[in-house]
Amino acid sequence: MLFSDVLLPALLETLYMVIVSTMFTVILGFIAAVGLIITGPKGLKPNALIYKSLNLVVNILRSFPFIILMISIFPLTKLITGTTIGTNAAIVPLTLGAAPFAARIIESAFLEVDYGIIEAAKSFGAKNYQIILNVMLKEAMPSIVLGITLTIINIIGYSAMAGTIGGGGLGDVAVKYGYYRFQSDVMIYTVIILIAIVQIIQALGNLLYSKMIK
């Protein structure tokens, strides 16, 4: 009864938040990383103003503790979702909190690509978008997979924190039952489920990485 009535719905809410947030996070993170790579000092099309502006935005968002970020963007969350509580509302701060992290990871993966390969692609007349999609993305994909795995795990942790202020999911259950009602068994079950999810995600990420580098 405890699992079917309390833990299972909370687990499904957490998975929903994590999956949707991850999709938006990867999209925004990839766009930001590409912008940083293209406009960087050694980029395909250097532009100091755009690079510094984008770099500043990423650094500012990364510097916010998630719980403070979530509260500070309540107006934006309400504008987008019409509410500041619930799983849909939690997706907004989850995405904004994780996207800068994903951007830095993807940027680092791109920077690891051998510059000689990029120069060779340029010599064959490849356009910038072709270099990014067909050369850099292909070479950096294993590292990006590991980075996205870490990002998902971060989002899982963020989703638990989101539950403390009405975001729903396992974090909400842990607070309501484990903290306010002193039901330590619910807290223990919640922790076990979160650990299991993280272990599964990490194992899948490692497996995919191993297959890609062979």
Score class of each variant (00 low, 15 high):
Ile200Asn: 08
Met141Trp: 11
Leu170Met: 07
Tyr189Asn: 13
Ala203Tyr: 13
Ile193Ser: 10
Val6Trp: 04
Ser72Asp: 00
Thr81Trp: 00
Asn47Thr: 10
Glu139Tyr: 08
Ile192Gly: 10
Thr81Met: 10
Thr95Met: 07
Leu208His: 07
Phe110His: 10
Thr87Gln: 07
Met161Leu: 15
Leu146Phe: 01
Tyr189Trp: 13
Lys214Asp: 09
Val135Gly: 07
Ile91Phe: 04
Thr84Ser: 13
Leu76Ser: 02
Gly166Val: 00
Thr149Arg: 07
Phe124Gly: 12
Ser4Gln: 12
Lys138His: 08
Val18Arg: 02
Val58Lys: 06
Ser72Gln: 05
Ser72Lys: 01
Ser72Gly: 02
Gly116Ile: 07
Ser21Thr: 07
Thr87Cys: 12
Leu207Trp: 12
Tyr189Val: 12
Val6Gln: 11
Leu204Gln: 06
Val186Phe: 11
Phe30Trp: 13
Ser210Arg: 15
Ala126Phe: 11
Tyr115Ala: 10
Leu8Met: 14
Met17Glu: 00
Leu44Thr: 11
Leu15Glu: 04
Pro142Tyr: 07
Glu13Gln: 15
Asp172Gly: 05
Leu2Gln: 12
Val175Tyr: 12
Ile80Glu: 00
Leu96Asp: 01
Ser159Leu: 02
Ala10Thr: 02
Ile213Ser: 11
Asn206Val: 04
Phe3Met: 11
Glu107Ile: 05
Ser72Val: 14
Gly168Thr: 05
Pro46Asp: 08
Met212Asp: 04
Ala121Val: 10
Met70Ala: 15
Leu36Ala: 06
Thr190Ala: 10
Ile91Val: 15
Val198Met: 07
Gly167Gln: 00
Ile31Phe: 13
Pro93Val: 03
Glu139Leu: 08
Val92Gln: 00
Lys52Asn: 15
Leu12Met: 14
Ile148Pro: 04
Leu207Arg: 14
Ile80Trp: 01
Gly86Arg: 09
Ile195His: 03
Tyr179Asp: 01
Leu7His: 05
Ala203Thr: 13
Glu139Arg: 11
Ile144Asp: 03
Val135Thr: 15
Ala10Tyr: 00
Val135Ile: 14
Asp185Trp: 08
Asp114Pro: 12
Ser108His: 07
Thr83Gly: 06
Tyr179Trp: 10
Ala103Glu: 00
Gly86Ile: 07
Phe66Cys: 04
Tyr158Leu: 14
Arg181Lys: 14
Gly97Tyr: 03
Thr14Gln: 03
Gly35Pro: 06
Ala103Tyr: 00
Ser53His: 01
Tyr180Asn: 11
Lys122Thr: 08
Ala90Gln: 02
Lys42Arg: 14
Asp114Met: 09
Thr151Asn: 09
Leu15Ile: 15
Ser108Val: 05
Leu146Asp: 07
Val58Phe: 01
Ser210His: 11
Ile80Asp: 00
Gln202Ala: 13
Gly116Gln: 08
Thr22Gly: 02
Ile105Asn: 05
Glu13Trp: 01
Pro75Asn: 09
Asp5Tyr: 06
Val20Leu: 13
Val6Glu: 06
Leu8His: 11
Ile156Val: 15
Ala103Asn: 03
Leu146Pro: 04
Leu36Thr: 10
Leu170Arg: 02
Tyr177Gln: 14
Leu194Gln: 09
Leu94Tyr: 06
